Simulated scan of single mutants.
Amino acid sequence: MWSSFTRKTLLIIGTAWLFDALDVALLSFIMPMVKAQWHLEATQTGLLSSVTAIGMAFGAILFGKAADQFGRKNVLTASLVLFSLGNLALAFSPNYHWFLVIRFIVGLGLGGELPVAATYLADHFKGTLQSRLLILADSFWAVGWLIASVLAFFFANNLGWRGLLILTAIPVLFALILRSKLTDAPKITTKSPTLKTSLIANFNYQTILLWLTWLMVMFSYYGMFMWLPTILASRGNTLVTGFGYTVLITIAQLPGYFVAAWLMGKIQVRWVFIIYMLGTALSAFAFGQADGIPATIVFGSLLSFFNLGAYGTIIALTPVQYLPEYRGTMTGIAQGIGRLGAVIGPLLVGWLLDYHVSVNHIFTIFMMSLFIGALAAVFLPDRLNA
Rank of each mutant, 00 (worst) to 15 (best):
S3W: 11
S4H: 13
R7T: 13
K8Q: 13
L11F: 14
L18Y: 04
A25H: 05
A25R: 03
L27M: 15
I30F: 07
A36P: 02
H39P: 01
A42N: 15
T45D: 00
G46Y: 08
V51E: 03
T52M: 11
M56L: 08
G59H: 07
A60C: 09
F63G: 03
A67E: 03
K73F: 04
N74T: 14
F83L: 14
S84F: 02
L85A: 11
L85S: 08
L85N: 01
L90Q: 10
F92C: 06
P94F: 06
L100Y: 11
V106S: 04
E113R: 01
L114E: 06
A117C: 08
A118K: 00
A122E: 08
F125G: 03
K126Y: 08
T128H: 03
L129G: 00
Q130T: 01
R132S: 07
L133F: 11
L136W: 09
L136F: 12
S139K: 04
F140V: 00
W145L: 07
L151M: 14
F153R: 10
A156L: 14
N157V: 07
L159F: 14
L159W: 15
W161C: 02
L165Q: 04
I166V: 14
I166N: 01
T168P: 00
P171L: 02
P171D: 02
L173F: 14
F174Q: 01
A175I: 06
T183V: 15
T183S: 10
K187D: 06
K187Y: 04
T190G: 14
K191G: 00
P193Q: 11
I200W: 08
A201C: 06
F203M: 14
N204F: 08
Q206V: 06
L209F: 12
L209D: 01
W211T: 09
L215F: 15
L215N: 04
L215A: 02
L215H: 05
F219G: 06
Y222T: 02
M224G: 03
T230D: 11
A233S: 14
S234I: 02
S234K: 13
R235E: 12
G242K: 03
V247A: 12
I249P: 03
I251Q: 04
P255R: 09
Y257R: 06
A260V: 10
L263I: 02
V269K: 08
V272R: 00
F273C: 05
A281G: 07
A295K: 09
G300W: 09
S301C: 15
L302N: 05
S304C: 13
S304K: 04
N307Q: 14
T313C: 09
L323C: 00
Y326Q: 10
R327K: 11
T331Y: 10
G332Y: 06
Q335C: 01
R339Q: 13
G341T: 13
A342Y: 12
G350L: 09
S358R: 12
V359W: 01
N360E: 12
L370N: 08
G373P: 09
A376W: 12
N385Q: 13
N385A: 05
N385L: 05
A386M: 05
